[in-house]
Deep mutational scan, measured.
Amino acid sequence: TTVHIGNVTYHFDNPEEAVKWAKEMAEKLGLRIEIHGDTIRVE
Rank of each mutant, 00 (worst) to 15 (best):
L31Q: 07
N7Y: 11
N14L: 07
D13W: 09
T1Q: 05
V8C: 13
Y10H: 05
D13M: 10
F12P: 00
W21N: 00
H4R: 09
E34D: 07
T39R: 05
G37M: 04
Y10M: 06
A22E: 00
V42M: 12
H36D: 14
T39W: 06
W21Y: 07
R41S: 07
T9Y: 08
T9P: 05
A22W: 02
L29P: 03
H36F: 14
T39S: 10
H4C: 12
K28H: 10
I35T: 05
W21F: 14
L31K: 05
W21S: 01
N14A: 06
I33M: 12
K23E: 07
V8Q: 14
V3A: 01
E24D: 10
I35A: 04
E43M: 15
Y10D: 00
E34Y: 15
E16M: 11
H36Y: 14
H11T: 10
G37H: 05
M25E: 05
T9V: 14
F12R: 00
L29K: 04
F12A: 01
A22M: 02
I33R: 00
D38P: 05
I33E: 02
H4A: 08
M25W: 06
P15L: 15
T1V: 14
I40K: 01
A26S: 06
V19D: 03
T2V: 11
K23P: 00
A18M: 03
N14C: 06
E27M: 08
V8L: 13
E16R: 09
F12Y: 03
I40F: 01
A22S: 04
E43D: 11
G6R: 07
E17I: 09
L31D: 05
D13R: 08
K23V: 11
L29G: 06
G30N: 13
K23C: 11
A18D: 00
P15C: 09
T39F: 07
W21Q: 01
H4W: 14
F12S: 00
T1E: 01
H4F: 13
L31Y: 14
H4I: 15
A26D: 01
G37F: 04
A18K: 00
R41K: 10
T2A: 07
E17D: 12
K23I: 12
K20S: 10
G6W: 10
R32Y: 09
G6S: 06
A26C: 06
G37S: 04
E43G: 15
G6A: 08
T1W: 13
D13C: 12
E34W: 10
E24M: 15
L29Y: 14
E34L: 07
A22H: 00
I5N: 02
V8P: 00
L29M: 10
M25V: 12
H11N: 06
M25Q: 10
I33K: 00
P15S: 13
E24R: 11
E24Q: 12
L29E: 07
K20D: 06
T39E: 11
G6L: 13
H4S: 08
P15G: 10
R41T: 13
P15M: 15
A22D: 00
T2E: 06
G6T: 04
N14Q: 07
H36T: 11
H4Q: 13
D13Q: 11
N7Q: 11
E16G: 07
A18G: 06
E43V: 15
T9G: 05
T39I: 14
V42D: 01
G30Q: 08
I5W: 06
W21R: 01
K20G: 06
A22L: 03
K20Q: 12
R41A: 04
P15H: 15
E27F: 10
E16S: 10
E17L: 11
D38I: 04
E34F: 14
N14F: 06
I35N: 04
E16A: 12
V8D: 10
E43L: 15
A18S: 02
P15I: 13
R41P: 01
K20Y: 07
I5K: 02
G37P: 04
T2N: 08
H36G: 04
R41Q: 05
K28A: 13
V42P: 02
V8H: 14
T2W: 13
E34N: 11
I40A: 01
G6I: 06
N7L: 10
H11M: 09
E24I: 12
L31H: 09
R41H: 14
N7D: 11
E24H: 12
A22R: 00
P15N: 12
R32V: 15
G6Q: 08
V19W: 15
W21G: 00
T2K: 13
N14Y: 06
H4P: 01
E24F: 15
T1L: 07
G37T: 04
